[in-house]
Design a protein around this nucleic acid. Sequence first.
DNA 1: CGGTCTCTTGACGGAGTTCAAAGCTAGTGG
DNA 2: CCACTAGCTTTGAACTCCGTCAAGAGACCG
Lengths: 191, 191
Amino acid sequence: MTEALINHISRYISLPEHDAGAISGYFTPLSFRKKENLMAAGQVCRNHYFVVKGCLRLFFIDEKGSEQTIQFALENWWLADYTSFSNQKTSAFYIQAVENSAVLAIDVHKQEQLLAQFPALERYFRIIHQRAHAAAQYRQQYTHDMTREEMYLHFAQSYPDFVQRVPQYLLASFLGFTPEYLSEIRSRNRT
Amino acid sequence: MTEALINHISRYISLPEHDAGAISGYFTPLSFRKKENLMAAGQVCRNHYFVVKGCLRLFFIDEKGSEQTIQFALENWWLADYTSFSNQKTSAFYIQAVENSAVLAIDVHKQEQLLAQFPALERYFRIIHQRAHAAAQYRQQYTHDMTREEMYLHFAQSYPDFVQRVPQYLLASFLGFTPEYLSEIRSRNRT
DNA sequence: CGGTCTCTTGACGGAGTTCAAAGCTAGTGG
DNA sequence: CCACTAGCTTTGAACTCCGTCAAGAGACCG
């Protein structure tokens, strides 16, 4: 189960074989059913999650009561509300399983111990966050540059399998518009 | 000049005093005049910049030819197009001085050497990127939750001095709307 | 002071939302 | 394995936020 994580780490830093076991020991494997919440708004985000199998999402509920998805996490992605996680303050976000999912969880305290014991992992997490930061810069560009229709078409072209995998209303809430409008877009782009 | 950087690093990790000089040596101090470009679209983002004094912005030019600001960097912030910087691929972004600015620059090669010589800095940069990642999650929330008017009011309340500091058309391009609309908002909220 | 850059104002249009209702799909239990 | 139900998607009409264009008023710099 922790194999996936060890493999992923090894892509970015070289890991002595005998460390794998000790590192694995820090993580708690958990399973969640579709729609199950890993965390709810008002709570502190206690865990940092690594997705082994399945799909998670980070979302919040806006003033009108509808869910807005901030981020998805597929296999080999990390997810947390990082503001809440690092400062152990209450979060405004939910984390939910989009599909039945297997994840590895580590709390902030254990993560500090892990990093203290294996400082080489600071580099791994630095790279993870740097890539996320880079992705956020590009996402920012798209939202300023394209109409919502172009965003959907671009997204559907870039991640065709992902679009198949999640329900449309989640996609709409991620791209920042209504399911109704997504439906309209799709009918327009169907010959 | 590198004092500001050393101070900033010391906020996040404990740094043996005698390392300060060696670390400083990796950085090139540079000055830019208001409106001067540190980097232009089509080039590779060769440097990672730390702002000692002044203000930088990361922006691109959209299909209609108008500038869209992705990110500002004030004193003690880092800035780069991280996709371009890490992979040394050509960038679609510009980096420009909003005010006369003093910065420290380090290229990707030197940064790798720096991190190799002082692995403790991996932790520093991990924290920097993690905070940026956290900020991106919250920015994402705001753009989904609020109207443009609410975004401006919220932003103006959160960073009143910054709003004074930069021209309105840059603020508008950062918040994702037109200077005309910003003007309209301001007149509405003036009694 | 002259010219360029920045901010304001107003009319109009269009992309995207909201609300409501009906059609479809998939999962669940009998 | 079928039937039922809850959840998801589609459609359409009215409405709103915000962009576009154009023209003028300030403001800042040499």
